[in-house]
Computed example of a mutant assay.
Amino acid sequence: MLSIKLPQLLRVHQVPRVFWEDGIISGYRHPTSSALDCVLSSFQMTNETVNIWTHFLPTWYFLWRLLALAEGPGFWSEPYHWPLLVFLLLICLYPFTSCCAHTFSSMSPRARHICYFLDYGALSLYSLGCALTYGAYAMPFSWLNSPLHQLFVPTAAVNSLLCTCLSCYSRFLELENPRLSKVLRTVAFAYPFFFDNLPLFYRLLLCSSGGFSCGQEALSANHSYHLLCALLTGFLFASHLPERLAPGRFDYIGHSHQLFHICAVLGTHFQLEAVLADMGARRDWLSAHSPPLSLAATVATMGLAVTGNLIIIAIFTTALLRAPQACPLLQETQPESIGRAKGE
C-alpha cells in the first residue's frame, strides 16, 4: 500500500534564528524542505498549518463573492462598478499570496524572505484597493471634487510603494535590530490603513458631533466591525499575545499570527459588506455630485502600482541573492541541531 511520510518537525533550537518566531517553541518544519514537503506539511499539524488554512479557505470565499457579484446586471458594463472589481480581485490576491508564503517559506532562508516580499507586495496593493473603493464610494460630501479627493488615490498608490519598500527592508534588520525591524514593519502597514480610512474617520466624526444630521454621511455598522477587526489585527501583530505570556503553549493552535489572520479576514469581509452598502445607498447621490469614474485612470493607477511594487520586490530579491552565504539572514543550518535531530 502506498504510504506518505510526513516531514519531520523540529524545535526552535534546531532551526536557524531567521526562522524563529517569538514564543513558538516547537512545530518548526525543516529549514531546507522541498516544495513537496512544504505542501505535505499543510496536512499535518505544524506551527504554520493554521496560518496556511486561515488564508487559503478565505481566498475561495472571496473568489465566490467576486463571481456572484460579477453575474449581476450591468456589473461589467457600468463604470460605477470598476473600483469594486479591482477591490474584489485584490481581496482574493492577498490571502492567496499569504497562504503561499506560509506554505513555502521553509524551503530555504532565501525562499523565506522572497515569499514574504511577495506577501508584503500583495498587502500593499490591497491597501491601494481600499483607497480606490473609498475614493469612489465613501467620500464625505465636503470632500467631493476637492484637491484632497483628487489626490487621494494617487497618494495611496505612493503609500503602497513605501509600504512594500519599508516592509521588505525590515527583513534585513530582523537579526541585528529586531525592535527597529518590528517598528518599521508595523509603521509600513499602519500608515496606509489610517490614510485609507480618513474618509470614514471624518464621516464618523461628523455623525458623532451634536446637531448634525448624518444623511449620506452615515456609516454602515459593518464599517465599525471592520475598524474593530483592523485594530485587533494590529494589536495581535505588535504584541505577540498570547504566546509571549506562555511560550510553547500556543505553538500549534491559538498563537497571535493565527488570530491575526482570522481578524484580518473577518475585517475584510465586513469591509466588503460596508463598501457594498455605501455603493447601494449613495449611488444616486454620488452620481449627481461627482464626475463619472474613468476606467483608463483606474487601470493606469493599478498598472503603475503593480509595476512599481514588482520592481521594489525585484530590487530586494537581487540584494538578497547577491548577499554572501555567510550572512546570518541566509544561514541554513543551526550548529549541532538538525543533524542530531535526524539521528534521534
Rank of each mutant, 00 (worst) to 15 (best):
M107R: 14
W20A: 06
K5Q: 13
I312T: 07
S170P: 13
T46N: 04
Q334H: 11
Q44L: 02
S239D: 04
G215E: 06
H113I: 15
G248I: 04
I52D: 02
A35L: 10
G23D: 10
L321F: 01
F75S: 09
A326Q: 14
A319V: 04
L132M: 12
T46F: 00
G215P: 09
C263E: 06
T307W: 11
P192R: 02
D119M: 03
H102E: 09
F104L: 00
G210I: 08
L276W: 05
G23Q: 08
L57Y: 12
L329C: 01
Y120N: 02
A297Q: 15
G308V: 01
S337V: 04
R110H: 04
T333P: 05
I338R: 13
Q258G: 10
Q216R: 13
R112C: 09
P140I: 08
L10D: 09
L204P: 00
A296F: 10
A300N: 10
L40P: 07
S108A: 02
F235Q: 05
A281R: 11
V15G: 06
E174R: 15
G343A: 14
T317C: 08
G23H: 04
W53T: 05
R185I: 08
K342C: 14
F194S: 00
Q331E: 13
R110K: 14
T298E: 08
L6T: 10
T32Q: 15
L320Q: 08
S160M: 08
L175H: 05
F316S: 00
I253R: 08
G339E: 15
I311F: 12
V265C: 12
P73H: 01
I312Y: 01
V183T: 12
